[in-house]
């Protein structure tokens, strides 16, 4: 998932960098007073937890494994601002200290792995919370769906960046279908694990779950499901439906971008009759039978992401009452 230097063009790297710096700047300012005191070590150790969680393999199917991305999980446990700050720090440190992901690619890596999944995931969480019962079980279900959605949003965000910054003759439509399709499947794992992890925290220290701070003790104790299994099956069906469109992509070991990158290799490309569009990378619009359809998809996805992230930030700003958990 950590794209290297030169994967998208320099303009896209700089533009996404500006968006990332701006957003994290807002998040830092918003959390400053709260963070100043107690939360610095807390946030640091929570960041270590997310970092470790990304190394944490879980089984997917027939012994293959996946790992958590953790953006939505961080936002739901710690709040969207702190969640996105923490995941951003993880991504930056991975690049700077572990040379994992390019330094010039940090702009889009932070956007896709921290900002979009954390704020977008949190917005989805709030959305789903409206339709599930106000109970502990509801929190768990909403977490699962939001985590699934956050991964798909992240894939959409990458595809849109490809539209602007493609460096290889692979069209937007191909990247979009492959990315979103595979991330639907990855998202199921992300959703199930995030939901169960939040469920485990709710069971013993519900006061630590930011996203559940609106519920009282009795509501939290009600963990009647809203069955996770049903959710998993619904998610799977949705993924299969999408999979029908991109059936050529194997399920065996979905590991994000790398997988897509390889799978994309088997997509047959159409004849090229690029329409030459000035603001989009030539490559991304090349070889499309119906360029306007692609652009429509890109536009809708872009709007979705912007709305979700914007709403996540808005919700965070509005909700921010420094909630001090019981000190021990």
């Amino acid at each position: 998932m950590h794209a290297p230097d030169g994967f998208l063009n320099a303009g896209t790297a700089v533009a996404t960098g500006a968006v990332s710096v701006g957003t994290i700047g807002v998040a830092l300012r918003q959390t400053r007073e709260v963070l100043k005191e107690k939360q610095i070590p807390l946030a640091g150790i929570a960041a270590a937890f997310i970092f470790a969680a990304q190394m944490f393999n879980f089984p997917v199917a027939a012994g293959t494994t996946g790992h958590l991305l953790g953006g939505a999980l961080a936002a739901i446990l710690l709040g969207p601002h702190m969640g996105s700050i923490v995941v951003t720090i993880v991504v930056v440190v991975q690049a700077l200290v572990f040379a994992d992901g390019g330094l010039s690619a940090l702009g889009y890596n932070v956007l896709n792995m921290a900002i979009v999944p954390a704020y977008g995931g949190y917005a989805l969480y709030r959305l789903f919370r409206r339709v599930v019962p106000k109970t502990g079980g509801g929190v768990v279900t909403a977490t699962g769906l939001a985590a699934l959605g956050s991964v798909v949003l992240s894939a959409m965000a990458f595809s849109i960046q490809w539209l602007f910054g493609a460096t290889a003759p692979v069209s937007f439509a191909e990247v979009f279908t492959a990315m979103v399709g595979v991330h639907f499947l990855i998202g199921i794992g992300e959703g199930v694990i995030s939901a169960m992890a939040v469920g485990a925290v709710l069971a013993s220290r519900a006061d630590l779950v930011y996203g559940a701070s609106d519920l009282d003790r009795a509501q939290l104790a009600d963990s009647r499901k809203v069955p996770i299994r049903t959710f998993a099956i619904v998610g799977l069906l949705a993924a299969l439906f999408f999979g029908a469109v991109v059936s050529q992509f194997a399920v065996d070991n979905p590991d994000g971008l790398e997988r897509v990158a390889i799978d994309t290799g088997f997509v047959e490309s159409e004849e090229d009759h690029a329409l030459g569009n000035s603001i989009f990378a030539d490559y991304a619009t090349e070889g499309l039978e119906n360029e306007s359809l692609s652009l429509a998809i890109a536009g809708i996805s872009g709007t979705l992401i912007t709305l979700a992230v914007g709403w996540g930030i808005f919700a965070a700003v509005r909700e921010r009452k420094p909630k001090q958990p019981a000190s021990v």
Binding site: A43, F56, A195, A197, G199
Partner: peptide, 30 residues
């Protein structure tokens, strides 16, 4: 020895436990 996603509950539960421990360590460090 889990092989399928639906067997992952103990792993997720341990991640939850890990989060609580991390949080509590954060408080002690503070």
């Amino acid at each position: 020895d889990p092989r399928w996603l639906w067997q992952a509950k103990p792993i997720a539960a341990s991640a939850g436990a890990m989060f609580i421990r991390s949080y509590e360590r954060g408080e002690r460090v503070h």
